[in-house]
């Protein structure tokens, strides 16, 4: 079995905003395929993605992406030509049509030959299923369509690295399903880093998962491994167990508890979400994460 080549190598990334340490010595490697980046609000996910997308430089640490060092101007520009970035809020120009917006970004990505650029814009719009509405102004598009426009611009130039910041936020289940299909296809042969709150997306799409909390990387591994962290820490009971870190009433009327189970508890098979919640749970579970 061959080891996949890493496309991103991050070492001790640190970034501070005032008194807040958004990234605190984050180190990881990414390989081709879809990697999910989980974490609660304020965990530092967007900051990490901005660093990887070369939008901002870290205060300390280094990152080597696709073999290029973004600290060097020439390599940073080369890298920008090979990555696609979909920010959480892309900043649509509402008076642009979908075509105009993607075309504008294509120019900023230095796709300067008009005819070829327009072909590329049509290709990516077709890829995300927006070819029919490309002449519509963005302000007339639904939220789901706008997310697809944002994805389309990220796909310009067929990038090796796709950085997607919460691409499924605000989408209805059907739109999310379509998005998953699309991202799943895109993950074949390229590196996709997907930031999300949705653990279902990670389960459905990701071969790897990273979890960030309070600027620190708490977990890297497969979704199964993340779920496996909660092995023996999920049980159900008729009432909420007072010793549980977290619990909720399920559709069967029983409570699903996460934490350190009491003796004789009726243990359940953990999910990725259980592992994720357990990691967020508190200091007493640090050893689990370790």
């Amino acid at each position: 079995m061959t080891t996949p080549a890493s496309t991103v190598q991050a070492r001790d990334l640190t970034m501070t905003f005032g008194r807040t340490r958004a990234l605190d010595g984050v180190s990881f490697e990414l390989v081709p395929g879809v990697t999910g980046l989980l974490g609660p609000n304020g965990a530092g996910k967007t900051t990490l993605l901005r660093v990887l997308a070369t939008v901002s430089a870290p205060d300390a640490g280094s990152v080597l992406t696709l073999g290029l060092d973004p600290r060097r101007t020439d390599q940073r520009l080369d890298l920008r030509g090979r990555l696609g970035y979909m920010p959480q809020e892309p900043g649509f120009h509402a008076h642009f049509t979908a075509f105009e917006f993607v075309d504008y970004v294509a120019i900023l990505k230095e796709l300067h030959q008009r005819r070829a650029r327009h072909e590329e814009v049509r290709r990516v719009l077709e890829l995300v299923g927006l070819d029919a509405v490309r002449r519509k102004k963005i302000k007339a598009l639904s939220g789901g369509m706008r997310r697809r426009v944002a994805l389309a611009q990220a796909l310009l130039g067929d990038p090796d690295l796709l950085i997607l910041d919460e691409p499924t936020a605000g989408l209805d289940p059907e739109q999310r399903l379509r998005f998953r299909e699309l991202v799943g296809q895109l993950g074949e042969g390229r590196t996709v880093l997907l930031s999300t709150h949705q653990t279902e997306d990670v389960v459905a799409l990701c071969q790897q998962v990273m979890m960030l909390h309070l600027g620190k990387l708490r977990f890297t591994g497969t979704p199964l491994e993340l779920a496996g962290l909660a092995q023996g820490h999920v049980w159900h009971s008729h009432k909420r167990d007072p010793g549980a870190l977290g619990a909720w009433r399920t559709g069967t009327g029983q409570h699903r508890n996460i934490g350190n189970p009491p003796a004789g508890a009726d243990l359940l098979e953990p999910t990725l979400e259980d592992g994720y919640l357990l990691l967020l749970g508190g200091d007493q579970f640090e050893e689990v994460a370790a």
């Binding site: 996949p4 890493s6 696709l66 590329e120 067929d158 090796d160």
Partner: peptide, 27 residues
């Protein structure tokens, strides 16, 4: 893990990799 080296990729659609970076940027 190993690092991916700079490959000889085909030019991205709409760009001309034959052009020097400065010329491409100017265009």
């Amino acid at each position: 893990s190993t690092t991916v080296e700079h490959d000889d990729r085909p030019p991205a659609a709409g760009a001309s990799r034959a052009l020097p970076a400065g010329a491409r940027s100017r265009r």
